[in-house]
Design a protein around this nucleic acid. Structure first.
Lengths: 190, 190
DNA sequence: ACCTGAACACCGTTCAAGT
DNA sequence: ACCTGAACACCGTTCAAGT
């Protein structure tokens, strides 16, 4: 008597998530529904609104970022770990530009998203607690994160258009920032 | 015989620009038209599309930012000028959050926008040419810009939610970054 | 209990008709 | 020459009707 379920929360979230990978594939409720093999109104049985569905994708994305950072962060010294984590962050953002834009879209930040965000930032703060001391660890993490986020969003916005090697500029900036936070790797000449 | 003009390019651009200030005022062609005292279809006599009108607002915004930076940048040393310019940049972005988001929205970057962007960045590059040398001036400017842009967009996205003093974290990060780029203001102890 | 066609409100855009 | 009502396509969302 009851109509059988043709989809699920997870299947819809997966279909929605995929819309952010294929370039040119617009995110619309109709497109997600079609990808999930269901009609548009059925989505509203499982997600209250477009925003709620995007919230689910966003939360999943922060978990993905956390895993990517954990996999990328390695090295013998704090400096090496911060450097490898930074390159991992950049690689994730540039590999998933539209997903990354969703993660940091201004506006709503639900509690679950904030928790996922905090979890992805925790390892960096932990390293910096040792490297710069507990009283500056949070500010230092925000500095590093601001640089990373700013770099990738400006690349994606096409703001670095004056030529030059953008990859080299990232490496240069990262080393100078680590110099400032941790002290120079070698004492400056002169 | 000819119908008299009831508006102009500039009047429409001004009305559009204003939609980015009043909080909660959505940008729509209908809202802009109403603010300009004209019906929606008339906008298309002067701007080919919503995107073209937003492009005009964006170009004007970069000119505004350039003027704000010029006014804010002062000081006896390069470090002081970079610091005051950085605070001016941050103040502009935080005072006009929705306009700022438009300026760096991913996607199209028309030639006129790129020129306006380059003009707003030129003074910073000029200071850095002296401070870090011509071969690193562009990379250093991108580093500073990435930090500034990243900081303000993360503030606006509500990403800095772990408590602590965000203003102090900005000042801390800026000084550490200037240390890394220019060398520490005072030699590090130990 | 879940799915769906039909409908609604909204928005960007076009166009023929007015003056 | 510029303005406008009417219309179109598209999208998020709702809901009564199906099974």
């Amino acid at each position: 008597m009851a109509a059988p379920a043709k989809t699920s929360d997870d299947a819809i979230a997966t279909a929605a998530r995929r819309r952010f990978e294929e370039p040119g594939a617009e995110f619309s409720m109709a497109a997600v529904a079609a990808a999930a093999g269901v009609r548009t109104p059925s989505l509203y049985k499982r997600f209250a609104s477009r925003g709620a569905l995007l919230g689910r994708v966003r939360r999943d994305a922060f978990a993905e970022l956390g895993a990517a950072l954990e996999a990328a962060t390695h090295g013998a010294t704090d400096r090496e770990r911060l450097r490898s984590g930074a390159f991992g962050y950049r690689a994730f953002a540039l590999a998933h530009p539209r997903l990354y834009a969703l993660m940091f879209a201004p506006g709503e930040g639900d509690a679950a998203t904030q928790q996922a965000r905090a979890a992805s930032a925790a390892p960096t703060i932990e390293i910096l607690r040792r490297a710069v001391g507990p009283e500056h660890a949070l500010a230092a993490a925000r500095t590093l994160t601001a640089f990373l986020h700013g770099h990738v969003t400006m690349v994606q916005a096409g703001a670095f258009h004056l030529g030059g090697d953008v990859d080299a500029a990232f490496a240069y900036g990262l080393e100078r920032l680590l110099d400032g936070l941790l002290g120079p790797a070698v004492p400056p000449a002169e």
